[in-house]
Nucleic acid binder design. Structure first.
Length: 204
DNA sequence: ATGACGATTTACT
DNA sequence: GTAAATCGTCATA
C-alpha cells in the first residue's frame, strides 16, 4: 500500500517560474470530470513564461487583458487560453500575485483514464487510431485529452475538485533536457533562451 | 469596424 | 516538409 500522493503547497508555486517548470517534471496531473471519471498522467514537458520582459509572453510589456488576467493571479492559479481557433493551452501562475509568470504544461505520459482520453481526443473523425503516446504529447492535445477548457481558467489548483497536481517521482538532472521554447515566432533574444524542460519517462 | 495573427495539430505531397 | 483548419484576441483606425 502506497502512501497517497502529497498535495503541493502554495509555496511550491511561489518560486521562480524556471524552478517550478523544472520541478513539475515527474509530477502527477489529475483531472476529475463532472461524472467522477479520473484522468491522470505524469508531466514530461514544460515551458516557462517569465514576466513582462519576456517578449514571447502574453503579458509582454505588462499587457493585462481579460484573456491573460490569470497570469497575474496568485501562484497555483490555472491560466487556460484558447488559440488557433481550436486549441486550448494550460498554464499555472507562479512567483507572486501581481507578477505575470506562468508554466505551460506541454506534455504528459497518461497513466489513468486512457480510454476516456482517447475518446476525448477523437471527438472529430480521425484517419488513424491514436496510440497512447500520442494522446497528451502536446499542449493542445493534453488539454483535449483532459477536457481542459476555459471553464477551468482561473481555478486554484490547490483547491479545485476538477484539477490537481501532486508530487510524483523525482527526476534526476541527467534525465532532463533544456531547450528553447516551441512555436515562438519572433521574440528577439527570447526565442533562443532555454526555457523548455523535457524528460523521457521510458527507460533509455 | 477591420484585419493580422497565434505558447497548435493534422493530413497530405 | 508544407498547408489547411478555424476563430478569439488585440492593435489600429
Amino acid at each position: 500500500m502506497q502512501t497517497p500522493p502529497e498535495n503541493l503547497t502554495r509555496d511550491f508555486f511561489a518560486r521562480s517560474v524556471e524552478a517550478v517548470a523544472r520541478d513539475l517534471l515527474g509530477f502527477q496531473l489529475t483531472r476529475t470530470l463532472d461524472d467522477g471519471t479520473i484522468l491522470s498522467g505524469i508531466i514530461t514537458e514544460t515551458e516557462a513564461y517569465v514576466g513582462p520582459e519576456d517578449r514571447a509572453s502574453h503579458a509582454f510589456g505588462g499587457r493585462r487583458t481579460a484573456r491573460n488576467e490569470h497570469m497575474w493571479s496568485q501562484p497555483g492559479t490555472a491560466y487556460v487560453y484558447f488559440t488557433y481557433g481550436m486549441h486550448h493551452c494550460f498554464n499555472i501562475a507562479c512567483l507572486r500575485e501581481g507578477h505575470p509568470a506562468a508554466v505551460l504544461i506541454r506534455a504528459m505520459v497518461p497513466t489513468e483514464g486512457i480510454e476516456t482520453m482517447r475518446t476525448l481526443r477523437s471527438a472529430r473523425p480521425r484517419k488513424h487510431p491514436l496510440r497512447d503516446k500520442d494522446l497528451c504529447n502536446g499542449p493542445g492535445k493534453l488539454c483535449q485529452a483532459l477536457a481542459i477548457d476555459l471553464d477551468l481558467d482561473g481555478i486554484d489548483l490547490l483547491q479545485s475538485p476538477h484539477l490537481a497536481i501532486t508530487q510524483g517521482v523525482a527526476v534526476p538532472e541527467a534525465r532532463i533536457q533544456r531547450t528553447p521554447r516551441i512555436g515562438i515566432g519572433s521574440a528577439g533574444d527570447w526565442v533562443q533562451k532555454p526555457l523548455r524542460w523535457v524528460t523521457r519517462m521510458d527507460p533509455t
